[in-house]
Simulated assay, not measured.
Amino acid sequence: MSISFSDSLIALTTRSNELAPHIPLVVNDIRLPRTLLCLVVGAILAICGTVMQGLFRNPLAEPGIIGVSAGASLGGAIAIVCFSTLGTQFPELMNLAVVPVFAFLGGALTTVLVYKLGSGKFGTSVTIMLLAGVAISALAGAGIGFLNFVADDQMLRDLSLWSMGSLAGATWEKISLATLTLLVLIILFSKKAMALNALLLGESEAMHLGIAVQRLKRQLILLTAVGVGVTVSVSGPIGFIGLVIPHLGRMLIGPDHRTLLPVSALLGALLMTAADMIARVVVAPAELPVGIVTAIVGAPFFLYLLFQQKGKIL
């Protein structure tokens, strides 16, 4: 729908009777919630990716690449199919409690499994992490495929739209949940910024500096799983934001997590909003799932990183 910038601004800031009745409805009830959810989800994914790369000390670490998003997606899909009756009777409870909890559990279990498989006495093996992520993503994909097979028509529609990653279903309840999660993550991650900086030197060096490395890892893994679980529950799986943004942040301001975390949150919010704008207009009047747009941007970037890292991996 074509609405001028001035009319949009008037609809946002005043209650003018000069506007057509549909304009405030479209701007305030459809476009504004979606834009706010874009900003918050992008920020959460970006800071989770930044923390994960700092935790594993590797530029290839990202919730989608190592299977965390796939595990969270499987958890959310289980909730959608197994509690479909509850979702019909109590949609707010479903969207704000059941799906986020299951997505968090799926993401947390996946993160712990990848960490256990990739860690050894000589540190963290990136090759094993990536291979574990491929295997877990395949298992999660098989699980989601089975759920699609047993789901009825309504479940199948909900699951299909959700699994492609979209922000079209933005509501103020989802925005509130995601915003609260973002604030908690920014506060807690900021408190761990110096510890993450120390961890960049190596685990043994961080321990000599007085960092409780194992406890730090458990805390950051848990918080990252919370962030990914919430974003998956409100928007479906959206990949590559957490991979691309930390690199852009380090190129702009360096590796210090005290400034890298807030800058990454800002860049992630802007990139997600831009991707959603592209998704809405590139095939208008139809709409692409935003997960497709981020994959188109992020996949070549990931291949570029693999090319840079191939000497280290091989």
Rank of each mutant, 00 (worst) to 15 (best):
F5S: 07
S6H: 02
L9E: 07
I10C: 10
A11N: 09
R15P: 00
A20E: 12
P21K: 01
P21F: 14
H22I: 07
I23Q: 05
V26C: 03
V26H: 04
D29S: 13
R31L: 04
L32Q: 11
P33L: 12
T35R: 06
V40F: 11
A43E: 01
C48D: 01
C48K: 02
G49K: 04
G49E: 02
G49Y: 10
T50D: 13
Q53I: 12
L55W: 02
P63C: 12
I66G: 04
V68F: 02
S69K: 00
G76V: 05
T85G: 01
F90Y: 12
F90L: 04
E92F: 12
M94D: 10
L96H: 11
P100T: 01
F102R: 00
L105E: 11
G106W: 02
G106P: 05
G107T: 11
T111S: 15
Y115T: 13
S119K: 09
K121N: 14
S125L: 06
S125P: 00
V126N: 04
M129C: 08
A132K: 02
F149T: 05
A151F: 07
D153N: 11
Q154I: 12
L156I: 01
L159Y: 06
S160V: 14
L161P: 08
M164K: 07
L167V: 08
A168F: 12
T171G: 10
T171S: 15
K174R: 15
A178Q: 07
T179S: 08
L180V: 11
L180D: 03
L180I: 14
L183E: 06
I187T: 15
I187L: 10
F189Y: 15
F189Q: 11
L196S: 09
N197Y: 09
N197L: 10
L199H: 05
L200D: 12
L201Q: 13
L201G: 04
M207P: 01
L209Y: 13
L209H: 10
I211S: 00
V228D: 03
G229P: 03
G229A: 09
G229M: 06
T231N: 03
S233F: 00
I241L: 03
G242T: 09
H247P: 04
M251Y: 08
D256Q: 08
L260T: 03
P262H: 10
P262M: 03
S264T: 06
L267K: 08
L270F: 15
L271I: 10
T273A: 15
T273M: 14
T273C: 13
T273Y: 06
A275R: 07
A275G: 05
I278D: 12
R280V: 02
L288Y: 11
I292L: 14
T294V: 06
I296R: 01
A299G: 04
A299H: 04
A299N: 03
F301D: 08
F302M: 09
F302G: 08
Y304V: 13
Y304Q: 05
G311L: 03
G311V: 07
K312N: 12
I313S: 04
L314N: 15
